[in-house]
Design a protein around this nucleic acid. Structure first.
Lengths: 337, 337
DNA sequence: CTGAAAGCGCTTACAG
DNA sequence: CTGAAAGCGCTTACAG
């Protein structure tokens, strides 16, 4: 049994395909009640489901938004930030009849991706990892495709057309956390960052630095291979052994902070009396570490929703109303500061 | 400047659209080297990107697989199992030029989803939560759409056409864990399950029950609201207070096991000497709990990859070769048994 | 080796 | 209120 199309339904209902099309698309004016009922009955009876490809070809719309996540790992969804963002995106798009085409691409293969080589979607969202240079190149590549582009978590590049940016207020969140830490009158603090410099981490680091330096806190920056919790622990441990215990350890994300907490407890230190610890981007899985970490709640889900609504508005109106959006990051008061 | 299409390129290169089409699709026979070069130059110069909608309409293929995750929560991606599965799916599909259309649907709204109402994708994958009845209804709905269907983590229903099942060997993993636990010669064990009965949980429970009962272990089942870690702790705690401490606590997932571990430590108990603890579905985020939990590693990523390859094969050959696939689950030896 | 033409499923402006 | 017809971008069997 062939899949029914407009012609099948039209023949079955004894009308033209134009009439069926109108009924299916909910145009109620200019159609007699009798015809309407007859067509609807045929649609039901035959189990007709409009083929988007046909409509898409006619309207040159696809009702699909492409989300490209450029990440060297095939586990590109493993990060809770990404997961939450994608959930928010997909949720909002679904509610408006749009699909989300999810595509993880390795940094070297962006050029070969079918998302880039062919016209598959109505607009793009991207979230890029990698060096500043490779991010710039890839952002430019997507921007040059002649379709609207929404960039998550990266710094705006003035020269790009039809491109919009959605970020969380990493600097604001870090400032607020820094002020919390200052209440403990620390003399020294260690800021632990991943060795891959994401723009968000850069912003957090700058903000911590500004606020704490102003109060004469002695600051050390420690880099670590963030993908490996043993490596994180080793970096922090080495640094303490060489430079002594700081009054605060600032993790630029929750994963780092939790490793630090674990390490400190294993050395018999009390938190926050001996050392205060803060994280960043509080997400559910890390709450299973069993400590109530003071951190900053990432609005990743909301960023996804906002991104989706901006893109849909852009598609409707033909332009982005506002080119940059920054969502607030709220401190989650735990017991580690 | 309009988006270039086949006609633009053909005019630019001074050939017919048929020739351009052949070049773009990599048909190398029956095209003179000179024509080939000229067309390729035009494609590059104009930045032509084939529109999939055109091809799709002609070939009646869309090169998109739809993944519907039926979950009451908008955070449908929050679970690491889902995340890993989707990553595997998307990864494999991307490598073969297919896109993954991700769609979270609330159980009541499956009927209204555009994925169901319109023909948007070439095949479906589904992963369903909810009661057995609602799962059955929704599976039937997707199967009735006249497109290939792949079901993750659910029991096969014999009556469905063109449907394939991919599961992990929950029973096997549970059996192996149960045998590990038996080495400690437990007299009693508590099995903690979520109050929502997923089919996977049911299988694990049955397997634990079989193996442990055979060795005369006294078994208690405790249900808990798994979405809330305080609720999990309370359920376990209450049960211990009323029935005494078991020799083993079997979490039917890692989250439950970690809450149990935390609770036991806070009561000053030693693991595994006083109580052995096991989890299920070992995923990265839970490794930050700071204990090396004995668990079973879920092949979620591999399930996604397998599902993708089965679907692509089905699309190529016209049928599913094998209707059911079960991937092994390996025990991860930690220090809690 | 190359191209004219039909047609995939649909929408829409227009004529009746 | 209804329908014939053009056309969206592409592929493909066929003729030359």
């Amino acid at each position: 049994m062939e899949k029914p199309n407009l012609h099948t339904v039209a023949a079955h209902a004894g009308v033209s395909i134009a009439t069926v099309s109108k009924v299916v698309n909910g145009m109620r004016y200019g159609i007699s009640p009798a015809t309407l009922a007859r067509v609807q009955a045929s649609v039901r009876e035959l189990g007709y489901r409009p083929n988007r490809v046909g409509r898409g070809l006619r309207t040159l719309q696809r009702f699909i938004i492409g989300m490209a996540i450029v990440d060297p790992s095939p586990m590109f969804l493993a990060d809770p930030f990404t997961t939450n963002l994608v959930a928010g995106l997909s949720n909002h798009l679904s509610e408006h009849g749009f699909g989300l085409l999810l595509h993880g691409i390795k940094p070297k293969q962006v050029n070969e991706s079918f998302l880039v080589r062919e016209t598959v979607v109505d607009a793009y969202c991207i979230m890029l990892s990698g060096s500043a240079v490779s991010r710039q190149v890839n952002t430019q590549l997507f921007a040059s495709l002649g379709q609207p582009l929404l960039v998550f978590q990266d710094r705006p590049r003035a020269e790009l057309d039809d491109t919009c940016y959605v970020n969380q207020d990493d600097a604001g969140g870090a400032e607020e956390l820094a002020r919390h830490i200052l209440r403990r009158k620390p003399k020294s603090a260690m800021i632990v960052i991943p060795d891959i410099f994401w723009p968000a981490i850069e912003l957090r680091l700058e903000a911590f630095w500004q606020v704490l330096k102003q109060e004469q806190v002695s600051l050390k920056i420690v880099r670590c291979d963030e993908s490996n919790s043993d490596a994180i622990a080793r970096s922090i441990s080495d640094h303490i052994d060489r430079n002594g215990l700081p009054d605060a350890i600032i993790g630029t994300n929750d994963k780092i902070a939790i490793v630090a907490l674990r390490l400190l407890s294993s050395r018999g230190l009390r938190i926050p009396d001996d050392v205060a610890v803060s994280g960043f981007n509080a997400f559910e899985p890390y709450s299973y570490a069993g400590v109530s970490l003071t951190s900053a709640r990432s609005p990743a889900f909301e960023m996804g929703e906002l991104g989706a609504s901006l893109l849909l508005e852009r598609l409707r109106t033909g332009r982005f109303e506002q080119l940059e959006h920054t969502l607030p990051v709220a401190v989650v008061q735990g017991t580690t500061i």
